[in-house]
């Protein structure tokens, strides 16, 4: 598998990237996100889709410059100089990496919530996906992000 995420590959993951759809294990109830073929806890293969809140806590972060960015993100680095990426523990249990938006000084432990943003553009197709913004405790829309 190459690094390039083709348009068909991307389309197959839209439910997770834009709809924050994870999978709940039918055996041990652990939630996996991003979706996996087997439960991350007990390796059970019987899984049911579940929509996540997108709310979580920042566990680690980095600031990526031109030298550390995958080429898909070169345009973003040219425009902004770089971007923050965080590792977020979602309140349903799983952890996921995502870019941080609306934040200049991230702090480990701060609450964040998922927002859907443009990730990058390739082959003339804009790729949308989740990023994370500071969470001030505001009411989230009922339909999720």
């Amino acid at each position: 598998m190459g690094a390039h995420v083709s348009v068909p590959m991307y389309r197959r993951t839209l439910a997770a990237r834009v709809g924050l759809e994870g999978r709940r294990c039918d055996r041990c109830s652990a939630v996996s996100f991003p979706p996996r073929g087997a439960c991350g806890q007990c390796r059970g293969r019987s899984l049911t889709p579940v929509r996540l809140s997108g709310v979580g806590t920042l566990q680690a972060w980095t600031y990526i410059t031109a030298a550390g960015a995958p080429p898909e993100f070169a345009a973003q680095v040219r425009r902004d100089g770089g971007y923050h990426v965080g590792l977020v523990a979602l309140q349903e249990g799983p952890r996921v990496a995502g870019q941080l938006v609306d934040v200049s000084d991230p702090e480990i432990g701060q609450p964040v919530r998922a927002v859907v943003r443009r990730l990058y553009e390739e082959e003339g197709v804009v790729r949308y996906g989740f990023k994370f913004a500071p969470h001030m405790g505001e009411q989230l829309p009922a339909e999720g992000v």
Binding site: A3, T62, P70, V85, V96, A97
Partner: peptide, 8 residues
């Protein structure tokens, strides 16, 4: 699919 598309 996910780490890289977070820009890592």
């Amino acid at each position: 699919e996910y780490e890289r598309l977070a820009g890592l």
